[in-house]
Simulated scan of single mutants.
Amino acid sequence: MNVNGVAAIVTGGGSGLGAATGRALAAAGARVALLDLNEGAAAEVAAEIGGLALPCDVADAASAEAAVARAAETLGPARILVNCAGVATAGRIVGRNGPLELQAYAKVIQVNLIGSFNLMRLVAAGALALDPLEGGERGVIISTASIAAFEGQVGQAAYASSKAGIVGLTLPAAREFAPSGIRVCAIAPGIFETPMLRGLPQEVQDSLGAAVPFPSRLGRPEEYARLAMAIIDNPMLNGEVIRLDGALRMQPK
């Protein structure tokens, strides 16, 4: 899909992977709405790229519905969605203080998995009503999984299962929307330079990066954005979960 002039929505657009993807889309001529719980952070990126910043709790139906409607009013109905909003709360199923609080597990599932589905259903509904572009495409939806979906470590039960849910969602969604020309893919990043990781001591960041076979460093948000743009550009990419990890395979701990 040629994104020039096309409306796009990026969740988690105030920082990290979402901000990098918003910048890449805008640079290619897309009209970009950045959705984030932190409206101030999204507004900073939006001002930089000439986009629209909107507050949104992706796990809340009414909040997401309002944000998608507002984006459509301002920029037109979105043909592109990139789900980057997420949380990575860690915790053993049974730790030193007993079993993990159920709400802590539910929160991760709500944001990472249900939040991605929430935006998918809303953006897809809008795109289905649009005329097809050249080649029959109506839209592209990309969600963010993780290599933890396949090799979750101790303490990642909530995070890994939320990302495994995104992996499981991708193919049935692609099959459902295929007759209407909406493609659905997911990216499964390895260890990336996100705000959370940048808060760790430099020696810890270096150690994490050294575990990656090649290149032996943390992934850069711009590299995630480049893959997202490649998926959008290539009409044969559909129903696929693509690892972006430098050949990293995570160990149990």
Rank of each mutant, 00 (worst) to 15 (best):
I191V: 10
T74P: 00
A178L: 11
A53M: 09
V32A: 01
L171Y: 13
R79F: 03
A106R: 15
S15V: 05
A104I: 14
G86H: 11
M1F: 07
Q251F: 03
V94Q: 11
I80P: 00
G22Y: 00
V94T: 15
D233C: 04
A62I: 13
R243D: 05
G18Q: 09
Q156L: 01
G126F: 10
E203M: 14
E134L: 07
G14W: 09
V123P: 03
G18A: 05
P179A: 06
L133E: 14
V32G: 00
D233E: 15
N38L: 04
I182Q: 05
I141M: 02
A106K: 15
V3W: 02
R183N: 12
D131M: 02
R249P: 05
P252H: 08
G91Q: 03
I114Y: 13
G98L: 08
G136P: 07
G14H: 09
E222G: 02
A211P: 00
M196Y: 13
E193K: 15
L208P: 01
R70A: 15
V45M: 01
G14Q: 10
G86S: 07
A228F: 01
R92H: 12
G51D: 05
E137N: 09
T170D: 06
G126S: 08
E134K: 09
T144A: 02
E222R: 14
S162V: 06
S180F: 14
A106W: 10
G168H: 12
G139Y: 12
V87N: 12
A66H: 06
A210P: 02
E44L: 10
F177I: 01
G22V: 07
F192D: 00
G40E: 13
F214I: 08
G219M: 04
T21H: 12
G126E: 10
R138P: 08
A127I: 04
R175I: 00
E176V: 02
A90Q: 15
A127L: 04
R96E: 15
A27N: 13
A59K: 09
R198I: 00
E48A: 03
I142M: 06
A64K: 05
A61E: 15
R121L: 05
I9A: 02
G40S: 11
A188S: 13
A33H: 02
C185P: 09
P235A: 07
N2T: 09
R31Q: 02
A129L: 10
A41Y: 06
G152I: 04
K163I: 04
A47D: 11
A160L: 03
I191K: 14
R31C: 01
G91M: 08
R23V: 05
A46W: 02
G22D: 08
A160Y: 03
F214G: 08
E240F: 00
R217C: 05
G135M: 13
L133C: 07
A66V: 10
G29W: 10
I142V: 11
V108Y: 02
A33I: 14
S116Q: 15
Q202R: 15
S207Y: 04
G50I: 14
G190H: 10
E65V: 05
C84T: 14
I242T: 04
I166A: 00
I141P: 00
G22W: 03
A178S: 15
P252C: 13
P99H: 13
M236A: 14
I109M: 12
N2V: 08
V140E: 09
S162M: 06
A125V: 02
A42R: 04
A33L: 12
A47H: 07
I166G: 01
S63K: 08
A90M: 13
D233M: 07
F214P: 03
L54S: 03
G91D: 03
A47Y: 00
